[in-house]
Design a binder for these strands. Sequence first.
DNA 1: ATGCACCCTGTAGCGACTACAGGGTCAAGG
DNA 2: CCTTGACCCTGTAGTCGCTACAGGGTGCAT
Lengths: 133, 133
Amino acid sequence: MKNGFLSIGDLAEATGTKVETIRYYERIGLLTDPGRTSGNFRAYGAEHLARLSFVRRSRDLGFSLEVVRDLLKLADERDRDCMAVDAIARGHLAAVEHKIADLGALARELRDLIDHCGHGTVAECRIIEALSP
Amino acid sequence: MKNGFLSIGDLAEATGTKVETIRYYERIGLLTDPGRTSGNFRAYGAEHLARLSFVRRSRDLGFSLEVVRDLLKLADERDRDCMAVDAIARGHLAAVEHKIADLGALARELRDLIDHCGHGTVAECRIIEALSP
DNA sequence: ATGCACCCTGTAGCGACTACAGGGTCAAGG
DNA sequence: CCTTGACCCTGTAGTCGCTACAGGGTGCAT
């Protein structure tokens, strides 16, 4: 795209996001309306690139879109102290750790099931047995 | 419910499933149609209880409904050998272990972010900084 | 006979996208 | 100048696994 603007495809490539996802983010108000060219194409600037990168990185870290929205707002209030940001990150870390523990218990249970499989018929399969009441 | 049949509410309570979920499972063909009473109420027997318990337990272990469907079919073919069951369980265990590793990496990254937060203003917040490109 | 808890169907909503359908725009090559 | 093909537009519907109504019917106790 000319004049140093990025097309939605350029922005998608630059951030590793799908074009549809960018439009979706705009629709739900996570990204601000970019300007349009005469042909009605979205034209993005550096600030849009920065904002979408922020969103992408937050999403990669597992923050929900709801929380990303909050983080974006906080990031804009440059003079506030960052306790709220810290709290969000800590809360999320706790949730992730909880999930890891849950999945760990699950993995142990699955390993237990698999270890007891005698490779006979389904009728004598311990896995099926363990799933049955 | 009389005659030893269970109402959908009874079945829900017995299995720890919501009534709506049971109807949903029936709609997608995971549970067989139970008979109906004269008043058009679903009437469940022991075999429905067993089947739903199997589904619940499988779901608790993290199998998708798609996979639960396969497991149910396999469980019914009592004379087959249980290699397919074993393979499903092993595949799922691998996926769970992969997810644990991913979440572990995530948790490390989050801890790193949080450790570097100096509790100053947002403008100098390392968390926001780390999220920004 | 009336209240209330339960049941019925059907449909729409969640989160976070993804995948079309059915069109419009634009730059390069012939 | 015209065509081709890659890109863009909007709008809608699908994914998974439920969950939550709305608007009605049934059954049992008081």
